[in-house]
Design a binder for these strands. Structure first.
Length: 604
RNA sequence: GCCCCUAUAGUUCAAUGGAUAGAAUGCUGGCCUCCGGAGCCGGCGAUCUGCGUUCGAAUCGCAGUAGGGGCGCCA
């Protein structure tokens, strides 16, 4: 409702000052402290135009301004204009949320489709806490976009033709030890061993390369067996994902890209005037994208090879083709089969040689959630699309970059196995254990398990999501699993309190002309921000804005809870009004938690 | 050499160019005869350096310092 309020204030400011509406709106903010509820700093820019001190202008405007709806009074404090909201505003807000219910904050359905691709982990290892950051970011951005009305497709790219998978597959075929336990974990541990052998032994290298060739051809037993192994590994990785409520709509396998759209994409690349075949120099024989825009000019070798001199495509080459497909720029398409039914009830599909359906891709915007270190290649893909004439698609190719999770003094390495002890599963298990200990003993064991699962997943999700993505996270158990202070359980706890009161007292009703306590006003002012926060988080693709909001909302609720008795308010009108505020808080807390994929528990 | 990201209380994070830089954690002092103490109220404590732009800078620009990443016919 903040957007609407801003508009109303801007309208009367515009009328009083003659400044354009959006100019007025831009100056409106939420002041801190005792400066009123809404403020405008428009007098500073007027001061320059009118060559008068801003203080003077402020008092003139304050005197002549027609008070907007929902505003009780306006005052000039020095050069600022400070507005105080009327009790009518608060009752309108409450009425609005009572009417909207759980739809509060949800945006109108839009037609445009957005693909969010994440986390695209190699299918030969378990997710560690770093992969988890990627997946949580992608998942939450998808939730936020969906809530704000967009049509979202959650996509995962499965590189089943990479060197790593070939190495793991070689180990699976040749090493004595047979799989046991969770397959992704087994493969990950085995990979450490295989990688060592691969480095030391030329013969192993040759065998792996032969295997990779067969996999790329896609025919014969090996290829099929490898695909099966990869599917099983992804299924095991997704077991982990589901603990954190991370879901997907479709998986695209590299092997299907090679089989289905690759040639057509290559043809397009070859024909493009933007791509040249080098006749001489170090890149002789390669198809090269010339990066000629200014920002690449000072790099040592700004040109990007898309096709090697032996005719095979590089990563960037493949990525360009895949990106074209995502936008529906290729005629060829995949066929899909069911990968699995997920715990959220939705089917996840996968590209498959023997699939039957065709229904994915063709997006108008593509968001790739990939680490910051890929900024350059991602930029290159955009530039290539642009130079091939796909201006709009280049514009709508978004690299959602994030910094990696680090251990205190080292990086995660699949090859060296530094991730052992830091898998997403281990983090979750430890979280469940710690949450269990906090739950009151009178709660039945079964429910305790359920609650602990939600608390652990929530706490972990929150701890990763509350940090802005461009910041490096140094992994520490205690901060990843914090159950107090700035954490998911703090917010969940506020929700559970509100839920209990709602169950006892119901929705309540708005009270016209009520004299509200400060704690009630502060809380309602937070609640009014919810839809605005959603649209900002969606626009900027930054879930941490929502995490921050959750904390502020819960804090305001807890203050309200402590200073304003609800069920024991004494006066019936006050009680009904506070019940309504309680209900509005309940809705806002639940909806904002859902954007982060955190369960709003009824009790905990 | 060039490009990108980061730098805020002891620690971890926040802050649409606006007024008194918010939280948490830590240390510290209070609050359960009262709707759930995973909570509430108080105290201590911070914008890397310099120059600039602006009525106004943690935020924008330039130059530094420190840390991380990138610029492969690798993957």
């Amino acid at each position: 409702m903040f957007g609407l309020l801003k508009r109303k204030v801007a309208e009367s400011l515009s009328e009083a000052t003659g400044e354009p509406l959006n100019e007025c709106e831009r100056t409106i903010e939420l002041p801190k402290g005792e400066f009123g509820d809404v403020a405008s700093s428009i007098c500073f820019s007027l001061a320059k135009k009118r060559k008068k001190p801003p203080q003077e202008i402020a008092s003139e405007v304050a005197a002549t301004l027609r008070l907007p709806d929902w505003v009780a009074k306006v005052r000039s404090d020095g050069p600022y204009l400070n507005f105080t909201l009327s009790s009518r505003f608060y009752s309108k807000l409450i009425e609005f949320i009572l009417k909207e219910g759980e739809k509060y904050g949800r945006g109108k359905k839009k037609k445009a489709k957005t693909i969010v691709e994440f986390p695209s982990v190699n299918p030969n290892k378990p997710w560690h806490v770093g992969h988890l950051r990627n997946a949580l970011l992608g998942d939450s951005v998808a939730r936020i976009l969906e809530f704000s009305g967009e049509d979202v497709e959650r996509m995962d790219y499965i590189d089943d033709l990479g060197l790593q998978v070939a190495q793991s597959f070689w180990g699976y075929l040749n090493l004595k030890e047979k799989p046991s336990g969770k397959l992704d974990l087994w493969l990950g541990k085995q990979y450490v061993e295989v990688a060592k052998k691969f480095e030391e032994d030329k013969k192993v290298q040759e065998e792996v390369r032969q295997l990779l060739l067969k996999m790329e051809e896609g025919k014969g037993q090996e290829a099929q067996k490898c695909r099966e192994l990869v599917e099983k590994c992804v299924a095991a990785q997704y077991e982990t994902a589901f603990k954190f409520k991370i879901y997907h709509d479709v998986l695209i396998f590299e092997s299907d890209i090679v089989r289905t759209i690759f040639e057509e994409g290559m043809e397009k690349i070859r024909k493009s005037k933007a791509i040249v075949k080098e006749k001489s120099g170090k890149n002789a024989g390669c198809l090269v994208a010339k990066m000629e825009s200014e920002e690449f000019a000072s790099m040592e070798s700004p040109d990007k090879i898309l096709v090697r001199s032996d005719g095979t495509a590089t990563y960037t080459g493949k990525d360009v083709i895949f990106q074209m497909w995502k936008f529906g720029l290729l005629k060829g398409d995949f066929r899909y089969a069911t990968f699995m039914r997920q715990p959220n009830g939705k089917e996840c599909e996968m590209s498959a040689p023997k699939g039957t359906r065709a229904c994915h891709g063709k997006a108008s915007r593509v968001i790739n959630v990939i680490g910051m270190e890929q900024a350059y290649p991602q930029k290159v893909i955009r530039e290539i699309l642009r130079s091939m004439g796909y201006e709009k698609e280049a514009e709508n190719s978004v690299h959602l970059a994030y910094e990696h999770v680090w251990l205190e003094d080292e990086k995660f390495s699949g090859r060296q196995g530094t991730w052992v002890g830091y898998t997403a599963d281990e983090l979750y298990e430890e979280g469940v254990k710690r949450a269990q200990e906090k739950i009151k003993s009178e709660v039945a064991a079964e429910e305790r398990g359920r609650i602990a699962a939600s608390v652990a997943a929530g706490a972990i999700r929150f701890s990763f999501l509350r940090t802005s993505p461009e910041k490096k996270i140094t992994f520490k158990w205690d901060s990843a699993l914090s159950l107090e202070g700035d954490s998911a359980p703090y917010v969940m706890y506020a929700h559970a309190r509100a839920q209990k009161i709602f169950e006892k007292g119901g929705k309540g009703r708005a009270e016209e002309g009520a004299e509200l306590e400060d704690a009630e006003k502060e809380l309602l002012k937070k609640i009014m921000l919810f839809d605005w926060v959603v649209s900002e988080a969606a626009r900027q693709l930054r879930p941490h804005l929502v995490a921050d909001f959750c904390l502020e909302l819960a804090e305001a609720y807890n203050k309200f809870y402590n200073s304003c008795p609800i069920l024991s308010a004494g006066d019936e009108r006050i009680q009904e009004r506070r019940l309504a505020i309680n209900y509005a808080s309940l809705v806002a807390l639940k909806n904002s938690l859902s954007l982060l994929g955190i369960d709003a528990l009824k009790r905990m």
